[in-house]
Design a protein around this nucleic acid. Structure first.
Lengths: 188, 188
DNA sequence: CTTAAACTGTACTGATCGGTAAACTTTAAA
DNA sequence: TTTAAAGTTTACCGATCAGTACAGTTTAAG
């Protein structure tokens, strides 16, 4: 097995699904955009759903890697990294091909909670929230779980606002709100 | 013209689109769910897109009416009403047929900012934010626009979290965060 | 009772959907 | 250089998509 073609397929499919949505993107469009034959695609993935799941796995890995590294680059201590997440989000929102969070969109199109695509989207969010919880614990907050949940609400809200209303500065609003949350959160 | 049939069609179409999504809901499914013939549907609306726009108009009116009334019922002063929005959201999240915000989902499926469906979704958010701004001004905050923006970010984040992760208590987290925002916002 | 508008069912269009069959060509390792 | 896997093109499948044509039926007002 040559992994390159498969990876290239998933990478190209990612941009197609991200830019156009899941239902709106037909397999023929993916053939066009990727330059990979349909027969070959279905040799790698049994169904469109399987391809989407692979796309979401790649997106999860790439996005979390990028976010975590950016948070570490922008601040040295855990408290600063929590706030730096919103600066990183702001950079993301400013990218020309920003089209919102792929997992929010996936869960919007596959609404059933038991659907694999929905479950995988929820898992992505769970992992990020756990990371924020670790940082909040390291920062010494007495209720790191609550802090992480509140910061996640701000993150999702800023992302949706940036996509739906083209409001890039939502990241700045969210950061200010996060600062107030951290100010009030008791330290253990 | 009898307005009843048309209204019934839009009402039934709303639940279909809300429960299943826009692309995933075919016109044949709307014929089934509404009991109204396809010929009659296309006599009222030229295209599926026109029907969706009418559905979103109805949703905007119904949702804002409900939210505003609920905020007024739960608190008497403007500051309390701002916080009561999150209690109202919590009630919404607990409804058995809650499936997230219809406008967030619409903008996820029609991503182009210039698309009528996307624009109408953004308008819905703009109107609610303006209402929050009025309440924040009445409450005496020196920067009511910023307060409204931050509360909107919390509202969107809580709604997405409740839908994507089945976390009804996101409304409670958001309310706590909102309390801290209001505590720190200077009064004029 | 008449009449016109509203609505109905049925059948259809061309396009596209996800997915497959079959025969052929490229690729990379033995 | 042989060989088998991985890739390709082309054509197709039945189902469904949004939307239409048409002839018949219900409805409500004069």
């Amino acid at each position: 097995m040559r992994p390159t073609k498969r990876e290239e397929l998933v990478r190209k499919a990612l941009t197609s699904f991200y830019q156009n949505g899941f239902h709106a993107t037909g397999m023929d469009m993916i053939v066009e955009q990727s330059g990979i034959s349909k027969t070959s695609i279905y040799n790698h993935f049994k169904t469109k759903e399987d391809l989407i799941l692979a796309v979401l796995r790649l997106r999860d890995e790439k996005f979390r890697n990028w976010l975590y590294r950016r948070m570490e680059a922008l601040a040295s201590n855990p408290e600063g990294q929590l706030l730096a997440m919103f600066d990183a989000l702001g950079e993301w929102f400013e990218e020309t091909d920003f089209k919102g969070c792929m997992f929010i969109k996936a869960s919007s199109e596959y609404q059933d909670q038991s659907h694999p695509i929905h479950k995988q989207s929820a898992e992505h969010k769970r992992i990020i929230e756990a990371h924020l919880g670790d940082l909040a614990a390291a920062a010494g907050y007495s209720n790191p779980v609550l802090v992480a949940q509140q910061l996640m609400v701000l993150k999702e809200g800023a992302t949706v606002t940036a996509q739906l209303r083209a409001r890039v500065d939502a990241a700045h609003d969210a950061r200010q709100a996060a600062e107030m949350i951290l100010l009030y959160a008791q330290k253990g």
